[in-house]
């Protein structure tokens, strides 16, 4: 202390060293959090009623936003696809192009991002408020695991809801693409749906499904973790919510890249 060499040279270095240390520490804590969550997922009893409630919140509650974004994504794909394909004179492939983009890429990613924004942030905020008002501590005192009551239902609900929401997104998107390509730009329904069926197979559907399951787990993991370890006060909760949305969105895109390279 007080030594100028210390203050100007060593302290900044110390601070610099603290950043990777705390990052690694945070990663470790996230890992432990996931481990405990998985433990309580498989250790009965399961709080089935709470799982239903979270499916209602994450799944049913996100349907409107998924239908809206899905329709418009499909419609944009219809437009863009048509103009791109018309340059090379193969607008007959519009159906397969729209379906392929949606099933393999846009469906899982967009649906996951929408769920993060709508439901993930709310999960973080709710857990964060429960943390700062000591409701999580109260569960501990009652000898009940907060993982079992609060985290596991969210994880299971996300694992079930996100793939289903993705499927809804895909179907609505394909119809949206048809609305533009077929009704507006004159690709016949036979060509549109025929090309779609011909050039797609089960692996496309499954790849999208695997991705969306991974994303569902990722959203629940990140958003629950951030809420569970929220800081103090309203500021702590708002910070946690922001971090949860940002981290989860970034991880979805990173994860998407690796899943794509592994799955194809």
């Amino acid at each position: 202390m007080g030594n100028p060499a210390d203050r100007w040279l060593l302290d900044p270095l110390r601070e610099l060293g603290r950043i990777p240390l705390s990052a690694v520490g945070g990663l470790g804590r996230m890992g432990i959090f996931l481990g405990r969550t998985l433990f309580y997922t498989f250790a009965p009893p399961l709080k089935f009623f709470r799982v239903l409630k979270q499916i209602q919140f994450i799944g049913f509650g996100s349907m409107l936003v998924i239908v809206l974004t899905g329709a418009f994504t499909g419609m944009v794909l219809g437009f863009q696809g048509f103009y791109t394909l018309s340059r090379v004179g193969s607008t007959a492939f519009l159906g397969s192009m729209v379906a392929l983009s949606l099933l393999r890429e846009l469906g899982p990613v967009m649906a996951a991002l929408m769920v993060t924004g709508r439901a993930g942030s709310a999960v973080t905020a709710e857990l964060g408020i429960m943390r700062i008002t000591e409701q999580i501590d109260e569960l501990e005192i009652l000898g009940l695991s907060p993982y079992r009551y609060l985290v596991v239902p969210n994880l299971l609900a996300a694992l079930i809801s996100v793939p289903l929401l993705t499927a809804i997104f895909d179907v609505v998107g394909i119809l949206g693409g048809y609305l533009i390509g077929g009704k507006l730009l004159g690709v016949t329904s036979g060509t549109y749906f025929g090309a779609m069926t011909d050039y797609m197979d089960m692996s496309d559907v499954l790849n999208g499904l695997y991705k969306s399951i991974c994303f569902g787990g990722l959203i629940a993991w990140v958003c629950c973790y951030k809420g569970f370890y929220a800081g103090y006060g309203a500021e702590g909760v708002s910070k946690a919510t922001t971090q949860a949305v940002v981290l989860s969105s970034v991880l979805i895109l990173i994860c998407d890249y690796f899943l794509t390279s592994v799955l194809f």
Binding site: I55, Q56, G59, M63, S161, P163, L164, L165, A167, I168
Partner: peptide, 8 residues
């Protein structure tokens, strides 16, 4: 929700 999702 489940019915619609599974149908899709």
């Amino acid at each position: 929700f489940m019915v619609i999702g599974l149908l899709c």
